[in-house]
């Protein structure tokens, strides 16, 4: 399972990175979102999968899956929502001001 997940994470990273390097601004935003998904899965995979029950103490279990990465990922999900939302709004605004979402046309002037 871990091997499979590692491959999934790798594919996520591959596609995410590829999308980051495309010309369309929206694809970049999608790429960022994919990368954050990938990171969450990466954290979970590195901690080891399926070592026990859900981390709830009042169910009579004694073996639990690791709660710490889960807590980390939970906050990371919320933060990545904030980041995705912000980049999306940034892309949206950029389009409205410049009337294009083509990154090649959004290059700065040479004097900068």
């Amino acid at each position: 399972m871990e091997l499979l997940m590692s491959v999934v994470v790798g594919v996520f990273f591959m596609v995410g990175t590829y999308l980051l390097m495309t010309r369309s601004l929206i694809r970049v935003v999608i790429g960022i979102n994919l990368l954050s998904h990938a990171t969450h899965l990466l954290l979970l995979t590195m901690a080891g999968l399926k070592t026990g029950a859900p981390p709830l103490l009042n169910r009579g279990e004694t073996e639990f899956s690791d709660p710490l990465p889960q807590a980390l990922i939970l906050t990371a999900i919320v933060i990545s929502f904030g980041i995705t939302a912000f980049t999306l709004v940034l892309a949206y605004r950029t389009y409205k001001v410049n009337k294009t979402d083509d990154l090649d046309q959004l290059r700065g002037s040479h004097d900068e």
Partner: peptide, 12 residues
């Protein structure tokens, strides 16, 4: 992608 796969699995 390949690097991340390797790193992820190695870390595990």
């Amino acid at each position: 992608g390949l690097m991340v796969t390797l790193v992820a699995f190695s870390a595990f």
